[in-house]
């Protein structure tokens, strides 16, 4: 196991260096001069321009700039946003809870519905339930979520008037950010009545939209894993022993079918970030996805650079954890790797 950990970590280091190179050079390739952009419409005198170039280190050779970037990175300094003048790291951690809150709700929603759907489809293989689940999963899997969001807004906010259109909470409430997670802040740190319900109502549609594709993937994966396991000898033995179907499926089959399913759930993190970009844009959700999109359009270089780096680092760490957990529960992987 230790060898597996070391091997995976060894692979991670060159990838991380690649990620820093990518995010650093991407920004240098973006059209537009960052200093002119920073100066805005007022323009900037040649002396001031040279001064600013020296201040940001843009007068240095590109390789020195990269080393400087790396040195600052290890001190937790990713620069300052052009538009808000706030440190990028600080902005990231202010907005990150909003994305995490939405992503966690989406994954819970996806598991809550996807897992039972997949199990039922496998048990009733070839029957109507199976066909319905698989067709729905296919549609969910193919869903353009930037359309699905507005479609749900039309139905539930427009026609039915049940849910709000955008944001994290109604304008009527002013919630001091304690943990950054709106559900926790409103429930434990605020005494305003109705604030928690407002936060919940604001979460419903974004959760469904972001959770749709993971739900479909989990349902499909659960079904095929269950089908495979249900053919195994030990399930036949359990049946022969006369155990109840509930025990066979719930205890014997599901436990083994869950191994690949858990991996799939872990690997959805990248999908969730990509989905968050669209979902947060549709619902004006103040999270990392919307922040990145806005910064790209504002050409806020430090934010794009730092954001890319932080997001890639998070995805890499989560994938590493998933890989290691998989190695832990599945000895075959541990020994062949």
């Amino acid at each position: 196991m230790l060898r597996l950990i070391l091997k995976k970590l060894g692979l991670l280091i060159p990838t991380f260096i690649g990620v820093t190179l990518t995010s650093f050079f991407f920004i240098r390739l973006l059209p537009g001069d960052p200093i002119l952009l920073l100066a805005g419409e007022r323009g900037v005198s040649p002396e001031r321009y040279a001064e600013l170039q020296a201040k940001f280190g843009y007068d240095q050779p590109i390789f020195m700039q990269y080393l400087d970037f790396l040195a600052k990175l290890f001190q937790g300094d990713l620069g300052v946003s052009f538009s808000t003048k706030q440190p990028v790291v600080q902005e990231f951690f202010t907005l990150f809870p909003a994305t995490v809150e939405l992503a966690v709700c989406a994954i819970v929603f996806a598991v809550l519905f996807g897992l039972p759907a997949g199990i039922f489809a496998a048990i009733r293989r070839g029957k109507t339930v199976d066909h319905t689940v698989m067709t729905t999963a296919l549609v969910g899997y193919s869903m353009p979520i930037f359309w699905w969001g507005p479609a749900l807004i039309i139905i539930f906010s427009g026609f039915l008037g049940w849910t709000p259109v955008s944001g994290r909470i109604s304008n009527m409430f002013w919630i001091e950010s304690t943990t950054g997670f709106m559900l926790i802040d409103t429930l434990f740190y605020s005494d305003e009545p109705g604030a928690f319900m407002s936060a919940v109502m604001h979460l419903i549609l974004p959760t469904i939209v972001l959770g749709t594709i993971p739900l479909a993937v989990i349902a499909r994966q659960t079904r095929s894993a269950m089908l495979e396991v249900l053919d195994e000898d030990y399930v036949r033995t359990a049946r022969a022993k006369g155990l109840s179907s509930f025990r066979i499926i719930g205890i014997h089959a599901l436990r083994n079918a869950l191994i690949p399913v858990v991996t799939v759930i872990g690997l959805q993190i990248g999908v969730l970030f990509a989905g968050a970009i669209l979902t947060e844009t549709v619902f004006s959700w103040p999270g990392i996805g919307k922040w990145m999109v806005d910064s790209i359009f504002r050409r806020d270089y430090p934010v794009v650079q730092g954001g890319l780096l932080m997001i890639a680092a998070i995805i890499m760490v989560v994938n590493l954890i998933v890989d290691l957990t998989y190695g832990l529960v599945n000895p075959k992987i541990r020994h062949t790797e």
Binding site: L11, V19, G270, V304, M316
Partner: peptide, 15 residues
């Protein structure tokens, strides 16, 4: 691996 470390849509957007 580096390409895969970024969310695909975000990378495409920056590109």
């Amino acid at each position: 691996d580096v390409i895969l470390a970024f969310p695909s849509l975000l990378l495409a957007l920056v590109l």
